[in-house]
């Protein structure tokens, strides 16, 4: 055990990382410290039944400083971002915001982000939107914007690409 911490998880031998914890909660509205472990978030979590996601555990692991294991876990990608935990928490903790911050940290470290997110990002860089214009097929009939009389999509100017490159050059705290 290092000299810095008085705490260690005996099962995983993990030690808390206070600076990393501060980085995660910096972007988040309410601090994790005030969670009083009522279990309400996990009791109502949309992803609990199917994927065993337990928001209260994520909040309290971050609170303790055990951030590394969360960042490299698949658990943080199980969240359905339905906001039920944020809506109902009696202490106004926001587990979903902590999970999103952990996801961003995972991306920064070059860890696996689901394919779909990467393709959405690529699409945004190419034409400004998260998806490509598609034909809708219903009962064998093809529909597109032209056929339906909708105006052409106004894409972004060239300055957009430069701006996006600037964004990825900026690291959010």
């Amino acid at each position: 055990m290092s000299d810095k911490s008085s705490l260690i998880d005996l099962l995983s031998m993990a030690e808390p990382k206070p600076e990393l914890r501060l980085k995660i909660i910096r972007g988040v509205e309410k601090l994790t410290d005030i969670c009083f472990k009522c279990m309400k978030c996990t009791s109502g979590c949309t992803s609990m039944k199917l994927l065993e996601l337990k928001p209260h555990i994520i909040v309290n692991l971050v609170r303790m400083g055990f951030v590394d294991e969360l960042v490299s876990s698949t658990m943080i990608w199980d969240c359905s971002i339905c906001l039920k935990c944020k809506e109902r928490c009696p202490q106004e903790v926001s587990p979903v915001d902590i999970i999103l911050a952990l996801r961003c940290e995972a991306v920064v470290r070059g860890l696996e982000a689901p394919e779909e997110y990467r393709s959405m990002l690529t699409c945004i860089m190419e034409n400004g939107l998260a998806y490509r214009e598609k034909k809708r097929v219903v009962e064998g009939v093809e529909y597109d914007r032209v056929k339906l009389g909708l105006p052409k999509i106004k894409g972004p100017k060239e300055t957009f690409m430069n701006a996006m490159f600037m964004v990825f050059g900026e690291v959010l705290g």
Binding site: L100, A101, C104, A113, L121, I124, L172
Partner: peptide
């Protein structure tokens, strides 16, 4: 979608 990738 970017909330899960990069907050900025």
């Amino acid at each position: 979608p970017m909330k899960s990738i990069n907050l900025t």
